[in-house]
Write a protein that binds this DNA or RNA. Structure first.
Lengths: 161, 161
DNA sequence: GCTATACCTGACTTTTTTGTCAAGATTGCT
DNA sequence: AGCAATCTTGACAAAAAAGTCAGGTATAGC
């Protein structure tokens, strides 16, 4: 249960674009340099983001990337979904469909857990927008702590059976 | 943001043990057979679980594995933490400490996100016990849907800036 | 239209994660 | 004591992910 490198880089690249003023754009080289990763690597990630229409790209001289929408309208859940896709479609290859029976046993109960966990993660991430991540670390941290979805007041967890 | 193979296998193995009666145990071969994985693979996972004292192992003839505590007292968050460790300690190797400055820039704001997401996941998982996962899929799914931590009633997500 | 800049894309290499193997160590039973 | 069943553990092999490279395509400016 971890954030993959591609997910983190995608987030970072988008954040760079989110900091720009209206009409401004960043070139691949600029983004790569600012994040300390190779241009090839940044290009791969941005190609995914472009394919999913999270960013717009313009080619040729004076080209570059910009967000396709205001940062306040882009949710982390979308970003993660885009960057996961192609590697993980569904939970794993072992499940033919989203709700068909598990390979091992139809009643393993594990798939429910995994599906529910993924739903919980997506819900938490959908409560955060790119715009909320601009600023210094302390500010961002404070903002995130104020989001209800991330910090439910109480959690009831009495074990049954 | 996905559940690794090792995490899933660990969960499955523990679930097999959770279904046993008091005093009963399962051998490595039995667990491996029931989950359809190799004995070597199951052995590796159970060694981790044993090292973390989530299971007890007894060697020699009549040996085997059993839970070290009642299933109702084992939370998913513990399990995931144990199975992640050794591969991911912290978020990544790039962070010296939990709250020290990021390698790229001190004000990237990304680490806050990742840390907060991990916390959200852990919180959701700590609301589920092994005992709640015993039973057929429909029952488990219903149980999980009733847990507040997994399904917050409302999520406020207005984008700032 | 030519050229320089910059994105696009598929093949390749390296690293990490998974999974396997085999030899060792511990216990119960005869 | 000796044997058989069982866990333990480190080294190795296969698969997947991450990252790199090089050639291709489009656009702006001259």
């Amino acid at each position: 249960m971890k954030v993959s490198a591609q997910e983190e880089y995608g987030l970072r690249c988008l954040l760079q674009l989110a900091r720009l003023g209206a009409g401004e754009a960043l070139t691949l080289g600029q983004i790569a340099e600012r994040e300390g990763i190779s241009q090839a690597n940044a290009g791969k990630v941005l190609w995914l983001l472009n394919k999913a229409r999270l960013v717009n790209s313009t080619r040729g001289t004076k080209g570059g990337y910009q967000l396709s929408r205001p940062a306040a309208e882009i949710r982390l859940s979308e970003i993660i979904k885009v960057l996961d896709e192609g590697e993980v479609d569904g939970h794993c290859k072992t499940y033919p469909g989203v709700l068909d029976s598990c390979v091992h046993t139809g009643d393993c109960g594990i798939r429910s857990v995994i599906v529910n966990v993924h739903e919980a993660v997506e819900r938490a991430l959908s409560a955060i927008t790119l715009a909320q991540l601009i600023g210094d670390e302390r500010t961002v941290d404070t903002t995130l702590h104020q989001i209800r979805g991330l910090r439910p007041s109480t959690v009831t967890a009495e074990g049954a059976q």
